[in-house]
Amino acid sequence: MVEDRDHREGEIRLGFDPADRANAGVTFVGFIRSDWSRGKSPRNITQGREAGGGNARIELAPDYLPGLQGLDVGQPIWVIYWMDRGERDLIVQYPRHSPEPRGVFALRSPVRPNPIAMAAVIITSIDNDAGIIGIDTTDAFDRTPVLDIKPWIAGIDVPPSG
C-alpha cells in the first residue's frame, strides 16, 4: 500500500484503484539502482544530473542479458520504468509550480493511473556479463522496476518543428 500524501484543494481522486482494473500484463526486465529514496530524490532528470546522477545504473534480470547486444557506451536510450511507490488514483492534481489544478495527462507527475515513467539518459558503461548498464542519471528511487529499454533515435524521437 502506498503512503497517502496530503492533497491540495482542487485535486480529484478516481472512485477506484486503477490496479484493480488491470487488463494487460507486464514483466520487469530489471531494476534501476540509485542513491535516491523517498524524500531524498530529485524531482526530474534535469535535477538528477545537477545532483550528480545518483550513482545510476540498470541491473537486468539474467534472462534479458542478450538484449544488451548492439548497445554502446555514449549512446542515448529511453528507460521506461514503473514507479511502484506512487499513488494511482489521483486524476487531477494541484502541482506547486502551477497556478491551478491540472489533469494527470498534462503533468509528468509520478502520481498517475499507470505509474509509468520514461527518461532519456546516456549509457556511461555496460557490463554485458553482469547485465549492468551505467547511466548518467535517474530520478527514480533505488530498486524501481524497469519495463523496457529502447534506443533514442534523433530522427524519430524529436518532434517536428513547425
Results as ranks from 00 to 15, higher is better:
R21P: 01
G162I: 12
E100C: 07
Q75P: 02
R5F: 15
N128V: 13
Y81S: 07
D63C: 10
Q93L: 08
I91W: 09
T46H: 14
I32G: 01
V158H: 05
I133G: 00
G10D: 10
P18N: 02
P110R: 08
G39R: 11
A119T: 11
P18W: 01
D72N: 13
G53W: 00
E9A: 15
H97C: 00
E100P: 00
P42K: 09
V92N: 00
P76F: 05
E87V: 05
T124I: 04
N128L: 07
E87R: 14
M118D: 03
R143P: 05
V158G: 00
N128T: 09
D4R: 14
G131L: 02
H97E: 15
H7C: 10
G54T: 04
S37M: 09
P115W: 08
K150H: 04
D127F: 05
Q93F: 06
M1T: 13
V158P: 00
R143I: 09
G52C: 04
I126E: 01
T46M: 13
D6G: 11
G39L: 08
T138R: 04
D142G: 04
G131F: 09
S98M: 13
A24K: 12
G52L: 02
L68D: 02
D17M: 11
A51C: 07
D157Q: 08
E3G: 00
S41R: 14
R43A: 14
L71K: 02
T137A: 15
I156Y: 08
A56M: 06
V29T: 08
L71Y: 04
M1K: 12
A22W: 06
G70V: 06
D20T: 06
D127P: 00
V2P: 13
V26A: 14
P95W: 10
I135M: 06
V73G: 01
P62E: 01
N23Y: 08
W82Q: 04
